[in-house]
Design a protein around this nucleic acid. Structure first.
Lengths: 340, 340
DNA sequence: CTGAAAGCGCTTACAG
DNA sequence: CTGAAAGCGCTTACAG
């Protein structure tokens, strides 16, 4: 049928075959109400028969690019892959497609990705900004003229924000442990200073205070291995061993649990551990992890929905949306051991 | 500085300020060697000062779109998120950007994504095709004129392929268990028929035979919960309990282990479990999981590299590339228990 | 080395 | 309802 010369078919080819003008084909392809039903059918048939593929790239005068960027710091963290899957799902269902950017917490690569997405003319970008975001990065974000929704972390940049009530989530964890009789409850994780960390921290401090307990924060990097090591140090010396750990997220909790088991401490009996996120594995580690569910998938879906509504209506997004968390009790938490 | 009327700046604006022609600006932006150094500097300064952002979308005559699609069946599986992170990394480093598509194993949505990526004029697509891929989907893939690289799964579609030596990987697992004295070794997982499943299956069968052992395959869906349930059924009755499980992947293994522990069986002593992939959590579950490392990240990097080389040189990709796996021994495997 | 002109494959008024 | 013309913001020969 077609020659070797791989020329991509154009709207004009379709027009010729269908016996209409280029404008009419264009209208049909975008499903305009202006065109007669018969004409539509003829055009669609011609396009189908020829194997024509619409070239959105050439539609530079169109209102939308149907591209939305999603920038996250670490796709490898199950929380973020879940979030990304949620975003992608909703975008796809609506005819949009996601441009992915994994920044690895590097503000340099975040900047690069952001610019490239801008160049590709994205209709919006959903971004969980890197913790090290310098002022200028934040400024650029707001000034760019891009429609941007920050998620999970809130920087100086004056854009819309979709977040989680971290403070309340941590309070749920502390309340749960306090009810079980724990008094030495350590907050594990979070070295850097950024909103998602300080909100957790403040939630922890104030809920410890409200129970009349003395807070203790042990900062650590958000990797399984770093958490494992920190916990080893923490329990190495006999004195001041906490009886419970509130972890920054499930990844930290899983690292911590592995370390405790290796030291011969039984999680859920000798030491209680609470995670944060309710990642897919949380239910299947040993013992199953008590955690604060942050509903990653729904969060992603929500982010995409907010952004799409705004794109389609040309309306601004609501400035701030906060989602609630919930406590999921499993076996990694139990009654506080008796004081020895 | 700029008015309210959010008109995006064009190359002409830059040209005017820099005092050169539009063509010259275009050449500078693409870093052509044709332009004098002084001119380049002047143009770049003007662009910078104005805050001009290149509009790649309008460059419809350019050779590349700088977009590469990556389509996977489940971003939520840590293996795929690792793979995707690898792809994204390499693409970003080279100035490309990834268009993400999560098909959720649905061939309908795979088709939609593929078409949308084609419409967006991607330079290539890296795809792990859905298992249910019908003939027509595969045909389309090959005929589309798109540059496509299939990864992990090989369909009828006649495109380049980057895969893993699954058969050998499974054989490594069986050899390991056989050396530990196991004879009742079950292959757990893989219901559907597609290359990555049959290759594992064949590797299992032939290596069991070579050890003079009787193979037994227990199909099950590739989710933690499904695996947990299948294992419960399998160990429910006293007779014919296997002493070792070779799992389709780590997700299955983690589900299986959770179930065994719940039944009071000690993994690594009563039952040995081998996973597949060496996912990040494998090292941190209890007990740490013996598994076959499929090097997901490197695989993704390799896929991106193959595709980029082909894009840049306009050369075809090598038809088939197969990567090797390696055995990682941890505590989930141990000597076969004595026959009771 | 640089610019004027034509072109890419669409969309958008506008006329009928 | 449909088509001819102009336009989008770039790139690409081509001339000098």
């Amino acid at each position: 049928m077609s020659d070797e010369t791989e020329r991509r078919l154009t709207i004009d080819d379709v027009a010729k075959v269908a016996g209409v003008s280029r404008s009419t084909v264009s209208l049909v392809l975008r499903n305009s109400g202006l065109v007669a039903e018969r004409t539509k059918i003829a055009v669609r048939e011609a396009a189908e028969r020829l194997g024509y593929v619409y070239n959105r790239t050439a539609a530079i005068r169109a209102r939308h690019s149907y591209l939305v960027g999603i920038i996250i710091p670490d796709l490898t963290n199950p929380f973020y892959s879940e979030l990304t899957a949620g975003v992608d799902q909703v975008l796809n269902d609506s005819g949009w497609i996601s441009l992915l950017g994994n920044s690895w917490e590097s503000s340099a690569s975040q900047e690069k990705i952001l610019r490239r997405m801008h160049e590709q003319n994205v209709d919006a970008v959903i971004i969980c900004p890197v913790t090290a975001a310098d002022q200028s990065a934040a400024e650029n974000l707001a000034r760019s003229g891009l429609r941007v929704l920050q998620v999970l972390r809130r920087t100086e940049a004056d854009t819309s924000y979709l977040g989680i009530d971290y403070a309340h989530g941590v309070a749920l964890a502390v309340d749960h442990l306090s009810e079980l009789g724990h008094t030495d409850i350590v907050l594990l994780g979070g070295e850097r200073v950024y909103s998602a960390a300080t909100e957790r921290y403040e939630g922890y401090i104030s809920s410890m205070r409200s129970h009349g307990l003395e807070p203790r924060h042990v900062p650590c990097a958000l990797r399984r291995s770093a958490a494992a090591e920190k916990v080893r140090e923490l329990f190495d010396k006999e004195e001041r061993r906490p009886t419970a750990l509130v972890c920054f997220n499930d990844v930290v909790a899983i690292g911590a649990m592995a370390s405790l088991e290796r030291m011969g401490l039984k999680v859920g009996r000798d030491v209680s551990v609470v995670g944060f996120d309710n990642v897919a594995d949380a239910e299947f580690v040993q013992p199953p992890l008590t955690t604060i569910d942050t509903h990653a998938r729904q969060l992603g879906e929500r982010a995409a929905t907010l952004v799409l509504d705004s794109i389609r209506n040309g309306s601004p997004m609501s400035a701030t949306t906060i989602m609630e968390t919930s406590l999921v009790v499993r076996d990694s938490t139990g009654k506080a051991p008796l004081r020895s």
